[in-house]
Simulated scan of single mutants.
Amino acid sequence: MEPEKMNGQEPVDYAARVLRVHEQASEVLEDPAIAMQWMLRPSVLLNGDRPLDALATQAGYDRVQSLLVRLEHGVGI
């Protein structure tokens, strides 16, 4: 039996993305708790999506990664 998928993604892929993004956000924001709060809040820069929800697709993952890189380097958002 095939495992349940989320938007075409295996649950393990989604979980790996969540862990990677939380780790990166923790470094950028300098606090794991603040990183989790950031992941749970809707973002105008993600068209109102929460970063956590955006991670369900490759395109959303790429958008979240880009946003974190911009935050890390102080690029205007």
Rank of each mutant, 00 (worst) to 15 (best):
H22W: 13
L19G: 05
A54L: 08
L71Y: 15
R17Y: 02
A33R: 14
Q37Y: 01
E27A: 09
P32V: 04
S66F: 02
D62H: 01
R41L: 15
L52M: 10
V18F: 10
Q58C: 04
V18S: 08
M6Y: 08
P3L: 06
S26Q: 06
E72T: 05
A15I: 12
V44H: 05
G8A: 00
K5F: 03
R50Y: 02
E10D: 15
P11K: 09
V12I: 13
V75G: 01
M39G: 08
Q24V: 12
P11F: 10
E72M: 07
T57M: 00
Y61L: 04
V12S: 13
R41Y: 11
G74P: 07
S26Y: 07
A54G: 03
E23C: 11
E30W: 05
A56L: 02
E2C: 00
K5T: 15
D49R: 10
M1T: 09
L46N: 08
P51Y: 10
V69K: 12
I34F: 00
E4A: 10
Q37K: 12
L46P: 04
A25M: 03
L46E: 07
Y14P: 02
Q24L: 14
A56R: 07
A33N: 11
V18W: 11
P11V: 12
R63F: 00
L46Q: 09
V28T: 12
A33T: 06
R63P: 00
E27N: 10
R20K: 11
Y61D: 06
S43Q: 15
V75D: 00
E30K: 03
L29C: 12
Q9P: 02
V28D: 13
E10W: 08
E72R: 15
A25G: 05
P42S: 13
G74D: 11
R50E: 06
S66K: 08
E4H: 05
S66R: 12
E4I: 13
V28Q: 09
R20V: 06
A25D: 02
V75L: 12
A33C: 00
A54D: 00
Q58V: 07
V18E: 14
V44F: 03
L40A: 03
V12A: 14
Q37W: 07
R17T: 06
G60M: 01
L45H: 11
V28F: 11
D62M: 07
P51I: 10
A35E: 03
